[in-house]
């Protein structure tokens, strides 16, 4: 083989497998969803029918779809800020005690739920939150406060699922923040402190810019990972109920597609989600590319 050819080929030997597998397993399904969304077909239909925009129209007209879409927005509004800011606060607290043996214990304890399987977490929480005799209500009533229906109350189900989802998955972001805080040079902080800067000032003027790449990274990944995390919690805790009040678009898609085998409608939902994901991802990168520089 000619050296020039070889030279051009080598980088692709390194990146080729990753690029190919991403295209096949992640972009491929997007295109497949597009195709499925205009067909009338489930795995067992003897023939494949063409549905055009029917599935989109049918989905958009459905009450449960609109409910799931609205819930998705609510979940994002509640969970995205929580999943970004609270882990940062926890990390700052632990970071403030670095060097102490207890810091390691706090870090481990707070990370613990992240490694608990959804099915196990679901059982534990349904006992704790059981409206009839769960511990949460027992404690509330011991203090003379009103008991609550938690995840079985249509008005509270989203909050209950959000709480469990947060509990289940804030650990990773906390670790990422901790890791970033560890890179901030102590000398800079000391100098600023000697200059008389307040804690908040120091954080916003000094620390935050230094950890901005991590901040960007967390912002990008959290945006959609929360949706995935919710699906696991919804599946084990509420099944989307009561009466669809805790479902979201991903869980709705899962139910329509793999519970009811409505591949067409489920794929139509998937396409709308994919469009939203791509749009938001593109916006994030476009926005941040100017601000954070990785090279």
């Amino acid at each position: 083989m000619q050296p020039g050819m070889m030279k051009r080929l080598v980088p692709w030997l390194f990146v080729g497998p990753a690029v190919l597998s991403v295209i096949i397993f992640l972009y491929g399904p997007m295109i497949a969803s597009l195709v499925l969304s205009v067909l009338d077909w489930n795995l067992l239909s003897p023939e494949i029918g063409f549905a055009g925009a029917d599935h989109y129209e049918a989905v958009l007209a459905r009450r449960d779809f609109r409910q799931a879409a609205w819930n998705t927005v609510l979940y994002c509004v509640i969970l995205i800020p929580a999943q970004i800011i609270l882990p940062l606060i926890f990390a700052l607290m632990i970071h403030g005690l670095r060097g102490s043996r207890m810091a390691v214990i706090y870090r481990s304890a707070l990370f613990l739920p992240t490694i608990v399987a959804y099915s196990v977490a679901g059982v534990a929480w349904s006992w704790l939150l059981n409206p009839v005799n769960g511990l949460f209500n027992e404690v509330l009533s011991a203090f003379g406060w009103p008991r609550s229906r938690w995840h079985t109350d249509p008005d509270l189900a989203i909050l209950a699922v959000s709480m469990v989802t947060f509990w289940k998955s804030f650990g990773l972001n906390m670790l990422l923040w901790l890791a970033a805080l560890a890179t901030v040079p102590q000398s800079l902080i000391e100098a600023a402190r000697l200059d008389g800067a307040g804690r908040l000032r120091m954080f916003f003027d000094l620390t935050l810019p230094l950890i901005s790449p991590t901040a960007f990274f967390i912002a990008v990944t959290t945006l959609f990972s929360v949706l995935d995390d919710i699906v696991g919690v919804v599946d084990v805790l509420t099944g989307g109920g009561p009466a669809g009040s805790s479902t979201n678009l991903l869980y709705y898609l899962w139910q329509q597609g793999l519970g009811y085998f409505q591949f067409g409608q489920a794929s139509a939902v998937a396409m709308m989600m994919i469009a939203a994901v791509l749009l938001v991802t593109w916006a994030q990168f476009a926005l941040v590319e100017r601000k954070v520089h990785y090279e």
């Binding site: 990146v15 399904p29 997007m30 497949a32 995935d228 991903l250 898609l253 899962w254 994901v277």
Partner: peptide, 28 residues
Amino acid sequence: FAGRDAAFWIIVATMSFPAVLAIIPTYI
């Protein structure tokens, strides 16, 4: 190498891809 940036973004853009979105075609 030529195409490096494009290849990089193709991969990195999937960082935020919720796995459930791909589940039906993958299952099929």
